[in-house]
Design a protein around this nucleic acid. Sequence first.
DNA 1: GTATAAAGTTAAGCCCGCTTAACTAAAAAG
DNA 2: CTTTTTAGTTAAGCGGGCTTAACTTTATAC
Lengths: 151, 151
Amino acid sequence: MTNSVQFTRSIRSWMDIFMHRSMRGWGRYAKSTGLSMHQVSLMMQLNYRGACGMSEISGRFDVTPAAASQLVDKLVQSGYIQREEDPNDRRAKLLNLTDKGRELIRQGIEERYRWVDQLAEKLNDEERVQISEALDIMRRAAEELEAEPVR
Amino acid sequence: MTNSVQFTRSIRSWMDIFMHRSMRGWGRYAKSTGLSMHQVSLMMQLNYRGACGMSEISGRFDVTPAAASQLVDKLVQSGYIQREEDPNDRRAKLLNLTDKGRELIRQGIEERYRWVDQLAEKLNDEERVQISEALDIMRRAAEELEAEPVR
DNA sequence: GTATAAAGTTAAGCCCGCTTAACTAAAAAG
DNA sequence: CTTTTTAGTTAAGCGGGCTTAACTTTATAC
């Protein structure tokens, strides 16, 4: 199982570097927006997963409905998201990014991508192909894992 | 430059998955310790970079010296780090992890590694070798990048 | 050797995010 | 059709993290 050990070592060490780098970038970005962690996260989630309701929010962030309501309020007042009535259930609300919100998130994502683009410049064609293939394999494995029951 | 496009797509998509997963894990861990983000970060940094002084802290986290002092205080009182006098400059302090602190961080790191270990189980030997090589290339590139002047 | 700068600490006060509690409105249950 | 449950909001209050301001102690400048 030597290659298994080698694999573990490689991925862990990559992970350390990547995490460190990402966290730094993320922190800076969140700070630059003037929004809280939760607020940025919420918008990211709206961007990736699409619209959702209030109860969804308080569930995901593990806060009370009241807290969720206030969290959303600020984002609405700042014009980043909008809160509409759910046509299927008039008690419920549907949260969506506004254009302004989408733009803010887009910038955040760009920021995150910049680093890997710089990384790409350091590689030759052959290396890119190799890495690209490797990452696709990992992505598939990750998706399988995600689909499985929690453990 | 088709393979460049392909590379970009692969790495970005991997990044999205990885980030999402890591942030979730990190958040849960930080919460489970009952410590603030900064407190956990500080300990992580002490673990990876070794001892440092107070001014270093307020610089890295971009907070006032007063805030840094209070931040450290709580960790000292909880027994996670210790604050000693710097022998070279008796005004300055040197912060270090205690055994208890080191253990806490070790657990956090383990936690983070668990996911990739599960990922490894999903792969066959050939894939592991391929990925391992690819990651090593990326790691080298990342280290080069880190060494360069900020831009 | 005095004056100034630097490293940290302490205390008081502010702001912000969270919670609980009380509420409204709509849907589901009976 | 009444009762109960569900989705969300509003208001009041608490606690934590941060800041400013004043202070002590040690090092550096001249």
